[in-house]
């Protein structure tokens, strides 16, 4: 048994899925986290609870609802099928969307914390120095929240990599399309191919460990400490 015998397809698919999800999450999560950090709106608590929901919800529950929504007759899958010809369930795009929801708290919460730590004071200083809101966000808030961004990106990536229940519900097990590492491991255990399952599991374990070591190291070493 050596590494070359293992089908690397699921590994690459997992990496692609995690990468796409993190990019989407940073784009969606930044304004959401910013709003949560600064709003005094009375719906803020509800929004925070919604964002945190994937932390406590069984992945199968989330996956079940998403499966229905993404299907050819679902409220999201239906219109998508009308435009593109295929629904979202059992597709890579569907997996990206599902992962985005599933990993949302892992990106939004570090960002929100970082923005709250930056606070309003440096922004006010930037505004009085002639910076517009957007200018102050990019030149003051973002660099000051850099640690939060790194934590968010790494945690979002790692968490997406390890997801199982949602993927199984929404994506199924289609090689090259939705068969990611965690599903592959499950498959191999089912077929009693323990040797391959060991290789993949150990790989994921070591990878996750290294990722967390990286996050903690970076957080300790970054020049901006706030």
């Amino acid at each position: 048994m050596n590494f070359s015998e293992i089908d690397t397809g699921p590994i690459w698919l997992s990496l692609q899925l995690a990468g796409a999800t993190v990019i989407l999450l940073l784009i969606v999560g930044t304004p959401l986290a910013w709003w949560l950090a600064h709003t005094r709106n009375r719906w803020r608590t509800c929004a925070e609870a919604l964002v945190a929901l994937p932390l406590v919800l069984p992945p199968t529950v989330l996956g079940f609802y998403l499966l229905i929504a993404f299907g050819p007759n679902g409220w999201l899958g239906g219109p998508v099928k009308a435009v593109t010809g295929s629904a979202l369930s059992f597709t890579f795009s569907g997996l990206v969307l599902a992962s985005t929801l599933y990993s949302l708290p892992f990106v939004v919460q570090p960002l929100q914390n970082a923005f709250e730590t930056v606070g309003r004071a440096p922004l006010e200083a930037a505004w009085t120095l002639g910076a517009s809101r957007l200018d102050a966000f990019f030149t003051v808030a973002s660099p000051m929240a850099l640690r939060g961004y790194i934590t968010a990106a790494v945690l979002g990536f790692a968490h997406t990599l390890g997801e199982f229940g949602v993927v199984l519900m929404v994506g199924g097990n289609i090689p090259g399309e939705t068969k990611v590492v965690s599903i592959d491991i499950y498959d191999r255990v089912e077929t009693l191919d323990f040797a391959s399952a060991h290789w993949l599991s150990a790989g994921l374990l070591i990878f996750s460990f290294l990722v967390l070591v990286f996050v903690y190291t970076v957080n300790r070493r970054l020049p901006v400490r706030i």
């Binding site: 006010e124 200083a125 505004w127 003051v140 000051m144 020049p223 901006v224």
Partner: peptide
């Protein structure tokens, strides 16, 4: 007029320098 369009210099109680 939004604050960034006012030619105003403001010095706060704390220096509020940008740490980065």
């Amino acid at each position: 007029l939004p604050v960034e369009q006012r030619a105003v210099g403001m010095v706060f109680q704390e220096p509020r320098l940008f740490p980065h």
